[in-house]
């Protein structure tokens, strides 16, 4: 039982990180219909800021907000430079643009910083663990769970009580009508990117604090996981993204924890098999968005 609870704590921490990642994709998708595959590069940018702060001996408590700010600014700049000119293009145009942005950024990191992975100095505290109700939980796991909760509460408040948040919800439901009501498209879209940058920044700090290094291609894996989680939860639905993130985290951890040793090699295909199974039963995802419907034919 204790082992099960311990693994559940691990699943919560991983699922929380996935939820933040998936939310970042979903916020933009719900408004623009764009899956931003350059989302991972926002994380890489935040990671490099952490790295440079470590080299310059900037305390970690200052480095973290700096990294998150950098990610927010980069997200807004990305929208302004790359996505605004193709905003009225087809879904495919925007998708390809996002791949292009990701690749250009990767090449810039490789040429301007280093093709090799760079160590990130982290406070020793993050490698420690504490005992909570008889469970041994790593400090970085606790940080992951805590920041997920804080971010979800913040997002809920922002979407319900903030003008920009309400406008974003309206735009997600029907952008044309929302604009007729006097909502500025630029503000809403820039706001969505800023929010996704914030989520990417927080997720990056959690991600990098586990791996202790950054490399130019590190954004690929998290954005892939986020994509799976967002599809699983229901594309375009924020609640769905959170649910999808947690479900993916739980699937991965429980399989790694409880699959018999001789089956462990097939953990990833089994995990993705479960995802497919869920989608067969709920083709629009766990909590589908009200406006996007995939039809079963």
């Amino acid at each position: 039982m204790e082992l099960f609870l311990q693994q559940t704590a691990n699943a919560l921490a991983l699922g929380g990180t996935y939820a933040l990642l998936a939310l970042g994709l979903a916020v933009v998708f719900s408004i623009m219909g764009l899956i931003n595959f350059a989302h991972g590069e926002l994380m890489t940018i935040a990671g490099y800021v952490l790295m440079y702060c470590g080299i310059a001996s900037v305390p970690f408590v200052i480095a973290v907000p700096l990294a998150i700010t950098a990610s927010v600014l980069a997200a807004v700049a990305m929208e302004r430079i790359a996505f605004r000119p193709v905003r009225n293009g087809s879904g495919a145009t925007m998708l390809v643009t996002s791949f292009a942005v990701a690749m250009i950024l990767q090449v810039l990191f490789q040429n301007l910083i280093s093709a090799r992975s760079q160590p990130v100095l982290l406070p020793a505290l993050l490698s420690d663990s504490v005992r909570v109700f008889g469970l041994v939980i790593g400090v970085n796991k606790l940080a992951a769970i805590a920041s997920t909760i804080v971010m979800l509460v913040f997002l809920d408040w922002f979407m319900k009580h903030q003008k920009t948040g309400v406008a974003m919800r309206a735009a997600a439901e029907d952008f044309a009508v929302a604009r007729l009501m006097g909502i500025r498209a630029n503000t809403v879209i820039a706001g969505a990117f800023a929010l996704s940058g914030l989520l990417a920044g927080v997720a990056a700090v959690l991600w990098v604090s586990q791996r202790a290094s950054v490399d130019p291609l590190m954004g690929f894996m998290p954005v892939l996981k986020a994509f799976i989680a967002a599809i699983l939860g229901g594309l375009g639905s924020l609640r769905g993204a959170v649910a999808g993130g947690f479900l993916l985290g739980f699937i991965e951890i429980y399989l790694a924890a409880f699959l018999p040793p001789e089956m462990q090699e097939f953990r990833d295909p089994i995990g993705l098999g479960i995802v497919v199974l869920v989608l067969l039963i709920r083709p629009n995802g766990l909590i589908p968005s009200a406006t996007l419907k995939a039809e079963k034919v």
């Binding site: 760079q118 100095l121 490698s127 586990q210």
Partner: peptide
């Protein structure tokens, strides 16, 4: 880091792939 955070204190042995600056910047872990 996951092993150490879970309370595993065993001697860890790796190979040439970890002969990189990151390995030497991990602090106590």
């Amino acid at each position: 880091k996951a092993l150490r955070a879970a309370g595993v204190t065993s001697q860890i042995i790796g190979s040439d792939g970890i002969d990189s600056p990151t390995t030497f910047s991990l602090g106590d872990a």
